[in-house]
Amino acid sequence: MNTIRTTLAGKEIVLGLTGSIAAIDGVRLGHALRRCGADVQGVMTTAACGILHPDAITYATGNVTLTRCGGLVEHVTYCGDGGSADLLLIAPATANTICKIAHGIDDTPVTTFATTAIGSGMPIVLVPAMHESMYRHPGVRACLETLRTWGIMIVDPRIEEGKAKIADIETIVHETERALSGLPLKGKTVLVTSGPCRERLDDVRVMTTRSTGKMGRELAREASRLGAEVRVVHGDTFSLPHVDNVHAESAGEMREAVLSLCAEQTFDYYISAAAISDFAPAAYEGKIPSGQQISVDLFPLPKIIQDVMQAENRPKTVVGFKLGWNSHEEAQHLLDAGVDLVAANTPDALGADSGAYDLITKDGCVHVEGTKTEVAERLWHLLR
């Protein structure tokens, strides 16, 4: 979460902390929200102040932490009708606080903010943290279900070591972004291919590209922030959070995975952001001896995007990426073949955190420059 993003730029978030030991994560959470552009106002219960000093949250947010509701009626100023805040985030939320909110009890600053926010219709994200036995209590579970029926977003805890541990910081920030996006892609399905492919040369060597998969990951994250159900086919050794991961090493494996997924369902969007291999070498058995000169035959591989467009369950919208110095000419070929949007760029963006892209459709071209997070935001803005 060290990357500076703009996904929460211009948003004011009230961060409520209650009396769980997980309150110590409030400093990192406050910093993480601010790195995404948010203005954060901390509010703490007396129990939370017994675990973490309010000055720590003041440091993290840059605003003086509220520990009581005073004569300025801060709960109304921030969370009442016409209040300045965009969202109330309660992290951590104890069993005590959850049940109080569900029953309209507001005897702490955080529950008073919650009652006010619920009455004004403000988006609320609640992040439980407690011992697992407390989390299993039927009354606590019933209260959580009540809050869900009121439209409150519950970020499920991690069940580890007999505790319902607070969700990780990245997940909390991601769910906050989702809650503030309005979920315009809710109900939509997205399939993304991402990262490089690795073609076997011998038993220890592969051929690949400088692609890191950053663009594909940001496109998948943005689709998830906007509410879509996202599947990502990639060759990374790790799993991308918040989406369904399908691992594929080579172009052949990626092609098989993509066509299999398309046979299962019709996707609303297919984003071909992977640097899919154009060629596969004639593989050697064993290890090519070091120090000797060899020649390698390269065999052309089929284009996955073409196979997808010819599939019986063709995705409703297809987006291709074209890398190269003549990318505009090649983009036109893709548009003529039925691709709906082509993101064209030069190799400078390969493996970099930022880049310049021309987003080309039959109706024209939009030039976008910035971080790959910003490029993903603009691309999805054009598509939806």
Rank of each mutant, 00 (worst) to 15 (best):
A257G: 11
G121S: 06
D106T: 07
G151Q: 12
Q332P: 10
G286C: 01
P92L: 00
L335Q: 15
T209L: 04
D168K: 02
I51N: 06
D363C: 05
I294W: 00
I305P: 14
G104W: 06
G62Y: 02
L240N: 08
H31R: 08
F238N: 14
D86S: 03
Q293N: 00
M122E: 08
S84Y: 01
V246D: 14
G364T: 04
G119T: 01
E222I: 00
G42W: 09
S295A: 01
G355D: 09
A228K: 04
I294G: 00
L350A: 12
R158T: 01
A223R: 04
W380R: 03
L52Y: 13
E199L: 01
A356Q: 14
A275V: 01
G30T: 07
D107K: 03
A352P: 08
F238Q: 15
I105Y: 14
G195R: 04
G291N: 01
T18M: 05
A349Q: 07
G216L: 03
V342N: 15
E249M: 12
E377T: 06
A38I: 03
A142V: 02
A251P: 12
V140M: 14
C79A: 15
L89Q: 00
E249F: 13
A273E: 13
Y357M: 10
S327M: 07
E74I: 05
V308Y: 10
G10A: 03
Q265E: 15
P138R: 01
K11H: 06
M215S: 09
L15T: 09
A129H: 13
V192D: 11
T193I: 05
E177F: 01
K214A: 06
E369M: 05
K316Y: 02
D81G: 10
K316D: 13
M1N: 10
T7C: 10
T77F: 14
G324F: 00
Y357N: 03
E330V: 11
T112M: 12
H137A: 09
V192S: 10
H328R: 13
G119K: 01
T7Y: 07
F279R: 03
V243G: 13
E374D: 15
A344C: 12
